[in-house]
Each structure stands twice: as C-alpha cells, then as structure tokens.
Write a protein that binds this DNA or RNA. Structure first.
Lengths: 217, 217
DNA sequence: AACAAAAATGCAGTGCCTGCAAACTTGCGC
DNA sequence: GCGCAAGTTTGCAGGCACTGCATTTTTGTT
C-alpha cells in the first residue's frame, strides 16, 4: 500500500492490521451493505477483537473512507510549494496531483471504496469535504497565497468549488470503472470551472468552451 | 413557521410538536454542544417522550438540520418552471430564490441553525448536499433541461458546484450574523463561479471580474 | 356516547462507541 | 538469556442512539 520501509516490525504490523481492517470493512460492506455489517464482524474478519478495531478507527465509517488526514497534509504541503503567481485554480489542481497518483496507483482498492462510499452520501461527503479543520487550513493557505483576508469569501468559495469538482471527478471515475484516467477527468472538471461552467449546448463562442467537457468518452 | 392554514387541529399540533422539538434541539446543542445533549433531554424540553422524538425525526441530526425534503421538492419544481433557454447557472440561481426567501424570513432560526451546524461538518454537509436522492434528482432535471446525457458529467458538476456556492454563501451569511443579505451573497458567489473564479488580485481584464467578489463587506 | 384512526408511550433489544484495568507482546540494555 | 519499560491487545461495564412491538391515550366523526 503506502511506503513502509524505514519502520520497525512494530509499526509495520500496525500498518498491516490497519490495512486488514479497512480491507475487511470494504469487502463486507460492499457485499452486504453498511448496516448489515457490524464492527464485530469486521474485527473478526481481520482477526482482532472488536475493541481493537476502535484502537485503529474512531468510527466504523472511518475504516471505509480511509486515512484522509495524511492526504490533507500532503496537499497542503504541495500547495505551499506552488509559486505564488500561479492562479488559484491551477495551483490547487497541481497540489492535488499527488493524491490523484496515489488513488490511481491503488485503483482496485479505491474503486471498491468508491463503490461503497457512493451508496452512502454521508460517507461521500466525508471523503472529500473531510473535516472542517482541513477545509479551514486550505482556505487559510489559499488566502495567504493570494494575499486575501480569509473572511473575504473568495478563498472559501474556491476551496468549496474545487472540492466539489474533485468529488464529481472521482464519482465519474468510479462509475466508469476507472476506464478514463482520473487525472483527465479532474482536468476536464477544472477546465469547465475555469471557463465558468458554460452550457456546452449553447456556447457563446463555439470554440471557446472548455475542451472535452461534453464528450461522453 | 411555514404556512399552516388549511389544516385540522391534529396536523397543526403535529407541526407544533415538530417545531418545538427542533427548537429545543437547536437551543440545547447551541448551549452545550452536540454530544453533551441527549435525545431524552431534547424530548423532555419539548414535553414529549423520548420515543416520540423518533416518531418525528429519524436521527438526532435530523432535528437540527430541519426539513430538507420539503425544500428540495420546491427547488425542483422551481427549476422545472424556468424556461429551457435560460443558462444552467442562472436557472439554478433563480430556482433557489424560494428557499433563500424562506431562510431570510426565519432569520433568527436559521442563524441559530447555522451556528450549530457550522461546528459539526457532518451536519454542514447534510444541510446542502442533503441526500443522494435529491442531488440525483437535480442532476436529472438539469440534464433534461439542457438535453444532456445524465452520465455526461456536466450536469453533475454544475449541481455539485452550485451546491458548494450555496454552502459558502450560507456560511458567510451566518458568520456575518445576517448583516449582509443572503441573496446578495449568493449572487456574488454565482457571479464568481460564472466568471470562472478569477483571482481578484490579478484579474486578466480588470473590469471584467465578478463585481464585489473581493469586497470584504 | 361510541367508534375508528392516529398518535404517544413504554419496554426490550441491538449495535456503536468509550473508559478503565488487566493481560500480553515487543524492543532494549544488561 | 533476563528483566524492564513501553506499547498493544483484550475484556468488561456502561452510556446512548435507534428500532420493533404492544399498549394506552387522544382526536375526529357518527
């Protein structure tokens, strides 16, 4: 899964247990549905006690959506590394590159995850929108980049909108079974947003709309 | 609250009980925090049994976010009423007018609601994003309007992005204590989206950016 | 007043999640 | 190898959200 080179046996085993729990949770919920699977069953499938499950995940849902916190930090660091003169949308798009790569690298896991998550809107919201802390951090990072007052409204709007774009791209990616590259789908969504979401059916200037937005495949 | 003219005493009392439960829930949670308030306490404050609470709301959260289903239907009907040649963004903006009016009409209730909801991202996501059914319905309605294949991606992107815009507008509205009109804030957000979220600090063409997006108040 | 539909309630039960304390495992210096 | 300290797993008791079912109470109608 994720890199686990420079770690002692102890931490390696922890990662292993965590992954086993997440995998068991995804498999069982995909088979039976969220409320037809108990934490006890998940723990059993991963060969640990039910109590131990809660040493790894605060809630049953957390085992399904995966480790969002780690990704967040990476995105924030990537965003800080983008030169300040890059426009906001492009900067965020490039900051997301690392996460996108990881998702496409673990395609099987993520397709299963999306399949599960898409059947439970509560989970879907948590997958991208994550927690308020993260979103707040993104807003502040963006405000710092563009020299805005964080209360301004603009940074918050950009973060919310790009989050929505990411969400729809991932849903589309999963719906198509991963046949189209997630990076492409995300580029398309960002291009459409940058163009102001023109109606592809009645473009003001036929050549000026975002390329590919209305292509089905 | 909402109109209750042509109803017998029975339904009037039901509405009353429902409103009392929601109000009690909001007040108590605002005072103490979500997990410091039990359903039993909410029910007690509304002078009904705990079991009765669940006859009105499926979950504790539902008492806090209010009746989303009713609003949805209204938005969908309003969207269907907008002439098909109106561009997607403008159509959605005008379909939201009814809900906006209702929110501003009950400003005190909604400001309290937002105050509570903003402290629990789980609730915030549910407030606008609602359930998948609604979002799906919006996507289909939009696809029908624009003559798109619903799997196209464009309608889903527009619905997700406008939802994000609505969410940020409501947060801003509540953060400002309702000092700026919600309709204004929403117009601003939609204008920024329609303009492709230009960075207000370095606009391509100074006069062409969305008006007011970077004004603090 | 009598009746039927609707609503409120109590009760038992499941499952998520937490704190605590007791076992157990692991890494490390000797 | 031995023992110690730190980290991990586990069981247990308990609180709370939520559900299904049966019973009682209220309400609108005849």
């Amino acid at each position: 899964m994720t890199r686990d080179e420079g770690l002692g046996r102890r931490d390696r085993k922890k990662r292993q247990t965590r992954a086993a729990l997440a995998a068991a949770a995804l498999r069982l919920v995909a088979e039976r549905g969220l409320d037809q699977v108990t934490v006890e069953e998940i723990a059993e499938a991963a060969d640990v006690s039910a109590r131990t499950f809660f040493n790894y995940f605060a809630t049953k849902d957390d085992a399904l959506v995966g480790d969002t916190a780690g990704d967040r930090d990476r995105v924030l660091r990537a965003l800080a590394a983008v030169p300040a003169q890059v426009p906001a949308l492009a900067a965020i798009r490039s900051a997301l590159a690392g996460v996108i790569d990881e998702v496409e690298g673990d395609a099987a896991l993520w397709l299963l995850r999306m399949q599960v998550v898409m059947q439970h809107p509560m989970l879907l919201a948590r997958l991208v929108s994550g927690n308020a802390t993260t979103e707040q951090a993104m807003v502040e990072a963006l405000a710092a980049r563009t020299g805005h007052d964080p209360d301004d409204g603009y940074p918050a709007l950009v973060v919310a909108v790009t989050g929505a774009a990411l969400r729809t791209a991932m849903v589309r990616w999963a719906t198509g079974g991963g046949s189209r590259s997630l990076a492409d789908l995300l580029d398309e969504a960002f291009a459409a947003v940058a163009a102001g979401l023109p109606d592809p059916r009645t473009p003001d200037r036929p050549g000026a709309t975002a390329p590919g937005v209305h292509r089905t495949r």
